[in-house]
Simulated assay, not measured.
Amino acid sequence: MKNKFLNPFVLAALLAMGNHISSHAQNKLNVLKIKTAKDLHAYFQFTGNDPILITGHRGGMVKGFPENSIATFENTLKHTPAFFEIDPRLTKDSVMVLMHDATLDRTTTGTGKLSDYTYEELKKFRLKDAEGNVTDFPIPTLSEVIEWARGKTVLNLDHKDVPLAMTAALIRKHKADAFVMLTVHSAAEMTYYLSQNKNHTFSAFVRNMKEYADYEKAGVPFNQMIAYIGPHVKPENKELYALLNKKGTMCMISAASSYDKLKTPEERKAAYLAIAKDGASILESDLPIEAAEAVKEYAQKESPKQRFFGKR
């Protein structure tokens, strides 16, 4: 009678193979297949049939993974497609590095002002996660992050202390206008960047009707921007949704300073769903993995936009 059971060595080999395949699948990144500035404009174009998009505020804040870190960006992309809001600042010797605060104390093993250190001096410090745990990750330069992001995701550069001209020049140097966008706090900033490159894409502060009127008066291309309308779901949003969506502009609500602070996952999930139901096209969060899971029924919506999502 033939043995109906697998040879233990064969079984062990099959299990190992299965674990390897599973591990390989988990290590794949969710990527955005955006190759040109025109693709980027199309990705952010409001059509009325769009999946809600997730953006990681400073990349995300998960235990063991510090904000504004390549390791954190990669960890987020293992779980969900996303783009990332990040914070370039200048060192003493004018190297652009990622750091939200003007000082090192909260997020690194260093102390004092970032601008008091050269980039070479910063190399000795390591980043801390949101709980203050020291990691092995160094402070990255913006150039390093741009080259890492190429073919994977989109970077949204906030405006801290880097002059607009330097930021525009770095994007031009890296030929990165297909996947690097710019946060602008006013129509004047947007107009300046457009004078440097008419193909730039923007995340613009449009939190009320006055700010909307400023952009409209400036004659900026609304089809090359998303609109940050604030951190809360509120009745006043409806007017902004209507005006901006009509121009093809997606609207973003950021939960980073509001709903991400709720105490329980259940409370946060309800808030993230409320953002999606309210009509926002983009959800920004310090917890992008959790937020993406909460709104996955909206994120996985059948849409022509799905052509921009892939794995690698």
Rank of each mutant, 00 (worst) to 15 (best):
K123H: 06
T111M: 12
K92D: 02
L122Q: 04
R126W: 06
L90Y: 09
E131K: 04
R89K: 14
K123C: 03
T141N: 09
N133P: 02
T103L: 13
G132K: 06
N133K: 14
K92C: 05
D136W: 01
A130R: 08
L90E: 04
I139P: 01
A130C: 07
E121Q: 15
E131W: 09
D101I: 01
M96K: 12
D116A: 13
T109E: 11
V95H: 14
D101V: 01
Y119M: 10
L122C: 03
A102I: 13
L122G: 07
R89V: 14
T118W: 06
T118M: 07
K124F: 01
R126V: 03
G112Q: 02
V97P: 03
S115F: 09
E121F: 06
L114S: 04
D101Y: 11
A130I: 12
F125I: 01
H100F: 13
T91N: 08
G112S: 06
D101P: 02
M99Q: 15
K92A: 12
D93K: 12
K128G: 08
D136A: 11
N133M: 08
T135H: 05
S115T: 15
L98G: 11
F125M: 04
T118N: 02
D105Q: 06
G110N: 05
G110D: 09
D129L: 01
T135L: 05
R89S: 13
V95Q: 15
T103Y: 14
L114H: 00
R106C: 03
R126C: 02
Y119L: 14
L90H: 10
T118G: 11
V134L: 06
D116C: 05
A130F: 12
A102H: 12
S94T: 14
Y117C: 03
R106E: 06
R89M: 10
L98I: 05
P138Y: 00
G112C: 01
T103H: 13
A130G: 00
H100N: 03
A102C: 07
V97T: 02
L122D: 04
K128M: 07
R89T: 11
G112T: 05
H100I: 00
V134D: 12
M96C: 04
T141Q: 14
Y119F: 15
D129R: 04
Y119K: 13
G110V: 08
T103K: 14
R126N: 06
N133C: 01
Y117N: 09
L90T: 03
D129F: 00
A102L: 10
T135Q: 11
T135P: 08
K128A: 11
K123M: 10
T103Q: 13
T111G: 06
D93A: 11
L127E: 11
L98W: 05
K128S: 07
Y117W: 03
L127A: 05
E120Q: 15
K128C: 13
L114V: 05
F125H: 07
F125D: 06
T118V: 03
T91H: 12
